[in-house]
Amino acid sequence: MADEAGKTARSGWEIGVSRTLPYPGSRLWEFLLGREGLEIWLGPGVELPRQRGAGYETANGTSGQIRSFHEGSRVRLTWRPKDWDHDSTVQLTVVDLGKRATVKIHQEWLADAAERTEARAYWQDVIERVEAALAER
């Protein structure tokens, strides 16, 4: 029997990664939604709109639409790299824990187990790069 870990009846193949960092939630959110942070997790050359239904496209061709935006805590959007034939949904959440905060990234509607594996590696790298960029500040 094939390994079906990561496949749900409701939203297909999905992945989630998270990390608690030694920064207040407001600082982490500000970084992630600023130019440098957006380039790390979403792609280069994009400003993320805040209104539901608004579209975006990065310089490398990733495109999507805002599904929901909760200032300071969560953004949910569709995410489609230029070489994909389908949309996925990404939710970025910042949980403020006072002097620390947890960043959570959840992606669903992935095509298959291989795409899930690629997504896991991508989002783990994103969190590593966010942590390194904040440490340099």
Rank of each mutant, 00 (worst) to 15 (best):
V90W: 03
Y122A: 14
D125P: 01
H106A: 09
A114G: 03
E131N: 09
D85C: 13
A113S: 11
I105N: 02
V126D: 02
R116N: 03
S73F: 00
W109F: 07
T102G: 00
W84L: 15
A111F: 05
T93K: 12
V126Y: 03
A101C: 01
I105M: 12
E118V: 08
R76Q: 07
A133K: 14
T117I: 10
A132M: 09
L77Q: 04
Q107D: 03
L92G: 05
L77A: 03
A132T: 10
V75K: 02
R120T: 00
V75A: 09
A113M: 15
R120W: 02
R74Y: 05
T78K: 04
V95M: 10
D112A: 10
T78P: 03
T117R: 14
V90Q: 05
H106I: 04
L77I: 07
P81M: 15
L110R: 07
Q124Y: 03
S88I: 01
R100V: 01
T117P: 01
L92A: 10
T89M: 14
A114M: 08
A121L: 13
L92K: 08
H86E: 11
V126L: 10
L97T: 06
V126A: 04
L110F: 05
A132G: 06
T89S: 12
A113F: 12
I105G: 03
G98L: 15
V103A: 06
I105F: 10
H106W: 11
L110W: 00
